[in-house]
Design a protein around this nucleic acid. Structure first.
Length: 857
RNA sequence: GCGGGCGUGGCGUAAUGGUAGCCGCAACGGACUUAAAAUCCGUUUUUCGAAAGGAAGUGCGGGUUCGAGUCCCGCCGCCCGCACCA
């Protein structure tokens, strides 16, 4: 009966079971149909799903169901990014095993996701900690090694003292570990590196071929790769007495045009020259320590003044035989970029300027605006512009009068002629250090042998599985403390050798999972035929926080897999969408403790604690986080309102790329709409065999077919909030027509409505479909098509403007032209009144939209 | 500092250069009810006006256009990303 409420607790599990039993979402290769691969960034099994997951997976699910209805062969898989530190922390804190903890979490979260009613092919599910997954990762690493894409080298690494592991540059944020938040230290360690820099140029170029990626993300990657065109050249060095030193000083610059403005050279404190000088210079030793301790965090950089110590040696100016400039060790020169050494041109660089001011070094201007008059003077700021054609070189011998570009070319030519230097393109991008001194990760499949050196594990010995009998009783890597695991014979000579005890950065696991989903049970990492059919991902959805790390690594991995014959597709993600966060009000008690929203109640406009009655202060609306306790548990919402309500809320009102604020009022609103739809549909189904007013039928039918077109366009463009507004419109139109239109028109509108919201609220759609008397399932219905005949309007309402101001409106036949409109409009009382006898200068008609009369004002 | 984005009712938002505010939330009024909840109907940018009907209005100041929330120039504010990268 219509009076009965829609009961999600019964309905939702029923339809979930139906979809599962009928294998509705299990994807199979079908060359006859176009494929569509929808993927949301797979979750880390932290314990329970959060609202961010609900939003992300709802969006992906709408796309999957919509595309499926449109006739695409849809692949929509799910898996688990299952290696990582939290599992080890749980082991340390609670004595559970990382493996058990992880798989338990997966079981919980899988059940939660299933409650959401997602159209996922669960037969393809895997976790990255499954040996059947990571063995392929190990095999590919060996291939990468043989292809020269892997290097082991001793390097200064970012050491996280809390997690006791190395971090990639990308994982250091403001000088702190991205996970632990600990101040990162510098250490020298032998590490494995994936040579992402091999593809620096290609990774940069290909960004232009990703038009369906957000501009923001492409820019972030561009900046991260950081290409700069410059020159590497060397200065001759001499000691204080003018005796030539054996080695030169190699520097990198992008402003070689300013060479005549050079007044000092500066090297990093880690530069060999600085280290060498420090051996006999106590002051310099202290300075090096101090700089190392400061790190490179943002605040430090802001605060740190430019400082340096002279090394007591001098560089000869390459073009001025009588000029020599001092060499400093300076805190603002980075060893990791260029040559770890620069020449300073204070007049045209802010840092050099600050440094020169502090140490009284000459500031000689060598670039000036083209239209400058008289002597060029240095003000309180360096002149750093002048890249274009509006600046010329001055005080620069043979460069005088040239543009900066021409001057660069001339300096480069002279340096190259004299073999003193060469043009050089530098990238900010560093190779990817992937060794982690942790247990819960993929073991790196190599053996260290005293006689053979580094020996890759033969592929037939893979997977190298993690031992399960490990202890977490002391800091550091449990694999290193395991009594037997690492002791193995050398695969090459058979003598006693040791396994690598480092494991992979977990970002490797997530750098190719999308390819594995194409053939999750294949004996090779990727089955070529499956990948050929399914790849690339047609729509990838995730948080913008992965704009650099995960997305750049994945693009690199696709290339490396291409070089080793595993994948024939450089760009894995054709379209990328970065969704906004879920935010929520925060509450604080009087003693400054964060309070759960579920404990906050409002009485007479004031917030108080549900139990203690203590008044609460309302804080900002912020990202849901455990620390601020402003979280809402999806389970609670799904239990009380149903998955469809939660899904509907996540798609409503706010555009998907923006942050959405979860409110209980909004959730209740969504729930009411679910009930309203149920009531409407039942009223329609009870209204059998009634004839209606032809006029009302037409109005309803037109609304129905117009909405089909709108929603189709909106879903194609991922404008979920707009699609939802249109659904409300159609349901309002249906409601208004209930007592007036014929049964046929009502049924058509109701069935269309159900099909249109089915991607968003699939359970409700199925139940309504049955209530309307259908014996099949919505999941098998094709997407509705608008009847063009219903889109043709005979008359339109046109606005009438006078001098751009709206004065009236008029209903006229569609397509009415100027000849028809002019006499009609000018005869209107409202128009006559405003014109007040003034002559019409112009009569503009925008067909079917607007009439604008221009008259003297 | 560099780069990007955004600024519209009480709130979330909508608007191929063409009637600003669709749709939702909240609020208010009414119906139903013994009552409440739920539901249904209606009102809701501001302002003047009894009404009819005016006026103003998309952060601020200019410009282009018959016409600007939308395009251009200059500001202000907020958000995000990057940052001693030579």
């Amino acid at each position: 009966m219509a009076s009965e409420r829609y009961n999600h607790r019964v309905t939702e599990p029923k339809w979930q079971a139906y979809w599962t039993e009928n294998k509705c979402f299990e994807a199979e290769i079908d060359p006859a149909r176009p494929k569509y691969y929808v993927l949301e960034m797979f979750p880390y099994p932290s314990g329970r799903i959060h609202m961010g997951h609900v939003r992300n997976y709802t969006m992906g699910d709408v796309i999957a169901r919509f595309r499926r209805a449109c006739g695409f062969n849809v692949l929509h898989p799910m898996g688990w990014d299952a290696f990582g530190m939290p599992a080890e922390n749980a082991a340390i804190e609670r004595g559970v095993h990382p493996k058990g903890w992880t798989y338990d979490n997966i079981a919980t979260m899988r059940a939660q996701l299933k409650n959401m009613g997602l159209a996922i092919d669960w037969s393809r599910e895997f976790a990255t900690c499954d040996p059947s997954y990571y063995q392929h990762e190990q095999a590919m690493f060996i291939d990468f090694l043989q292809a020269g894409l892997v290097e082991r080298r001793v390097s200064q690494v970012n050491w996280d003292p809390i997690d006791q592991t190395v971090l990639a540059n990308e994982q250091v944020i403001d000088g702190r570990g991205w996970r632990s938040g600990a101040l990162v230290e510098k250490r020298e360690l032998a590490q494995w590196f994936l040579k992402i820099t091999t593809y620096a140029q290609d990774l940069l170029n290909a960004l232009d071929e990703l038009p369906n990626w957000p501009e923001k993300v492409r820019l972030m990657q561009k900046n991260w790769i950081g290409r700069s065109e410059g020159m590497k050249f060397s200065f001759d060095l001499e000691d204080a007495d003018g005796n030539a030193l054996p080695d030169g000083l190699s520097v990198y610059t992008t402003r070689h045009d300013t060479i005549f403005g050079a007044s000092f050279c500066a090297v990093s404190v880690d530069h060999p020259l600085a280290k060498q000088a420090a051996a006999t210079n106590l002051e310099l030793q202290d300075f090096r320590k101090e700089v190392a301790a400061l790190g490179t965090s943002e605040e430090n950089i802001e605060r740190a003044e430019k400082r340096g110590l002279p090394l007591g040696i001098f560089a000869r100016h390459p073009f001025l035989s009588d000029v020599r400039i001092p060499v400093y060790a300076a805190n603002f020169v980075l060893m990791g970029y260029g040559e770890g050494a620069i020449f300073g041109c204070p007049a045209h660089d802010q840092r050099d300027f600050d440094f020169a001011r502090k140490y009284g070094l000459p500031i000689l201007p060598v670039v000036a605006p083209r239209d400058h008059v008289g002597d060029v003077v240095v003000g309180s700021e360096p002149y750093v512009d002048g890249a274009g054609d509006d600046a010329v070189l001055v005080n620069s011998a043979f460069l005088n009068g040239l543009s900066t570009a021409d001057a660069k070319a001339e300096v480069a030519r002279r340096f190259e002629e004299s073999f003193r230097g060469s043009r050089r393109i530098n990238f900010r991008l560093r190779d990817w250090g992937v060794s982690r001194q942790r247990y819960w990760g993929c073991p790196i499949p190599v053996v260290h042998c005293k006689s053979c050196g580094i020996v890759p594990v033969p592929k037939q010995h893979l997977p190298i599985e993690l031992p399960e009998d490990v202890k977490f009783d002391k800091p550091g890597n449990p694999l290193l403390h395991h009594p037997t695991w690492r002791h193995v014979p050398c695969p090459s000579c058979g003598n006693a050798a040791e396994r690598e005890t480092d494991t992979f950065d977990t970002f490797i696991d997530s750098s190719w999972y999308f390819a594995r989903f194409c053939s999750p049970h294949a004996a090779t990492p990727v089955d070529a035929a499956a990948a050929k059919y399914w790849m690339g991902v047609d729509q990838y959805i995730g948080g913008v926080e992965h704009a650099i790390l995960h997305l750049l690594y994945s693009r690199f991995f696709a290339r490396a897999m291409g070089a080793t014959g595993h994948l024939q597709m450089d760009e894995p993600f054709k379209s990328l969408f970065t969704q906004g966060m879920v935010i929520h009000e925060t509450f604080k008690s009087q003693d400054g403790e964060w309070v759960l929203p579920s404990d906050a109640v409002q009485t007479n406009g004031a917030w108080m604690h549900r139990e203690t009655g203590q008044p609460l202060t309302v804080g900002g609306v912020e990202k849901m986080s455990k620390s601020k306790r402003n979280v809402v548990d999806p389970d609670t919402i799904i239990d009380s309102y149903g998955a469809d309500t939660a899904r509907w809320f996540m798609l409503s009102d706010t555009p998907p790329e923006r942050d959405i604020e979860w409110t209980s009022a909004g959730a209740e609103g969504s729930w009411r709409f679910v009930q309203r739809i149920w009531r409407l549909v039942n009223e329609v189904s009870e209204r059998a065999g009634k004839t209606g007013n032809a006029e009302d039928d037409l109005v309803l039918r037109r609304a129905t077919h117009k909405v089909i077109g709108w929603i189709t366009d909106d879903l194609m463009a991922l404008r979920f909030n707009r699609a939802i507004a249109r659904i409300y419109e159609l349901s309002n139109a249906l409601n208004a027509a209930l007592s007036k239109a014929s049964t046929a028109a009502l049924r058509e509108a109701a069935e269309t409505l159900v099909l249109l919201f089915a991607p968003m609220m699939p359970h409700l759609a199925e139940e309504c479909w049955v209530a309307l008397g259908n014996s099949n399932a919505v999941v098998d219905q094709a997407w509705p098509k608008a009847d063009p005949a219903m889109l043709v309007e005979e008359s339109v309402t046109m606005a009438i403007q006078i001098n751009g101001k709206r004065r009236d409106e008029i209903v006229v036949p569609k397509g009415a032209g100027k000849e028809f409109l002019e006499p009609l409009v000018l005869a209107l009382g409202s128009v006559k009144r405003v014109l007040n006898g003034k002559p019409v200068i112009k009569f503009i008609v925008v067909p079917d939209r607007i009439v604008n009369i221009v008259c003297a004002s």
